[in-house]
């Protein structure tokens, strides 16, 4: 098959495909959420099953550092932060979490939102997710990573070229 627009080179087509894929992913509508308390948001993940999810912001330090926790709401009202829903809608769930962070930081622009995985492996994955969506996320947020250096742990601007090595991530509304 001969291509109709010969001025478009394959490399350009690949870039175009990647751009369209990213846009497709980013345009996935997040779930609707409810702010049920000053620091708590609920939403329902509807994938293979129906899972009630909870996002909780917990104060770490008085200067406004808040820990971001995502968990599943259990029938007894408690929150399980370690459970694996495997509901087949992780992109939509992540998009909802980003929306919630945007809402929370719109209400509290001075807040720093900190998150890390409960294992090193999970933290690495969160870094990869952040790296994939950095271009759109960085439009609204400053993003920093905690790194172990010779003179202790430090926050440094998030570097998309790094493959890992962060202990956690901090975001702040621009």
């Amino acid at each position: 098959m001969r291509f109709a627009w010969p001025f478009l080179r394959p490399v350009l087509l690949i870039y175009l495909a990647i751009f369209m894929l990213i846009n497709l992913v980013m345009s996935r509508n997040p779930y609707e959420y409810n702010q049920v308390a000053a620091t708590r948001y609920d939403f329902v993940s509807v994938g293979k099953t129906r899972v009630e999810k909870v996002v909780v912001f917990t104060l770490i330090e008085d200067f406004g550092a808040m820990n971001l926790g995502l968990g599943d709401l259990l029938p007894d009202g408690s929150i399980d932060y370690g459970r694996v829903s495997d509901n087949g809608d992780i992109i939509k769930v992540l998009a909802t979490v980003v929306d919630i962070v945007k809402h929370y930081t719109w209400l509290h622009p001075e807040a720093f939102i900190y998150f890390q995985g409960s294992t090193n492996e999970r933290t690495k994955l969160y870094g990869r997710v952040l790296k994939n969506y950095y271009s759109s996320f960085s439009e609204s947020f400053w993003v920093y990573g905690a790194m172990e250096e010779e003179d202790g742990v430090k926050f440094v601007p998030f570097d998309v070229t790094m493959s890992g090595g962060y202990l956690g991530f901090l975001v702040k509304r621009k």
Partner: peptide, 22 residues
Amino acid sequence: NAPYDKLEKAKELFRQPSVIKS
């Protein structure tokens, strides 16, 4: 590489002088 308490880890991290300095 067992799961740890994220909030406790975060509190520990933010207490470090090097973190505050950065």
